[in-house]
Amino acid sequence: MLRFFHQLASPKHFYRISGKWIPWLGAACLAFMLAGLYQGLLVAPTDYQQGDSYRIMFVHVPAAWMSLFIYMVMAIAGGIGLVWRIKLAEIMAISSAHVGASFTFLALITGSIWGKPMWGSWWVWDARLTSELILLFLYLGVIALYNAVEDRRTAARATSILALVGVVNIPIIHYSVEWWNTLHQGPTVTKFDAPSIDFRMLIPLLLMAIAFKLFYAVVVLLRARVEVLQRERNTSWVKALVAEHE
């Protein structure tokens, strides 16, 4: 087991193994997404309060969950890279930033589109929305900082510190609907007692959440592979690969 992780941390093996995983992860992602869309758009009943507008939830909530999840992955991977100087951890951290930013953007924009018919406004400066907007700026800051520093390893160290500092925002986002009186509704799925959501709505939501998680896995691996090639461009195995590409 330890040997497996040790090998995986070597860029060459990571490149080879991830190449094998991507098609399977991609196929699973597609299957879950199609099932989720079918269940969410056709099977799930209309909400008695929100009509059919609530179906935005099936993209909004998974995107929002992933925006937090990816941030934690990025910060933890960055922290590992910082402490143990594992190149692959740095690569995973920076490869997560773009996907995370795009999911945060997606959560904000679909929330806005959902807010218009339900709250009568595209945007309110409510605690949940504001803290999620700050999350987007944190992601963009990480990306900008990484691109601003020439040396990749120095850049990775700087961005990891920024990402770790930004972790303070994560519990604020999560608990914002409980700490403050927000227009944004409270949690319905992660409550300790039975979730207060219809089973036929919960199923597509979970299917879509799994699909989004798999999608993140695919994209982060694709991005990490490019980053590995870039960093290892002077090694013989990359040169052999380039010759093959010709």
Binding site: T46, G51, D52, S53, R55, I56, V59, H60, A63, H98, V99, S102, F103, F105, L106, I109, T110, I113, W114, K116, P117, F215, V218, V219, L222
Partner: peptide, 23 residues
């Protein structure tokens, strides 16, 4: 979509664009 077509479908369309761009 019970009168919410423009809201629901624009959300799904934006989601599709974001996912494709990521790939």
């Amino acid at each position: 979509m019970g009168g919410y077509a423009s809201y629901v479908w624009s959300s799904y369309a934006i989601a599709l664009v974001v996912l494709l761009a990521n790939l």
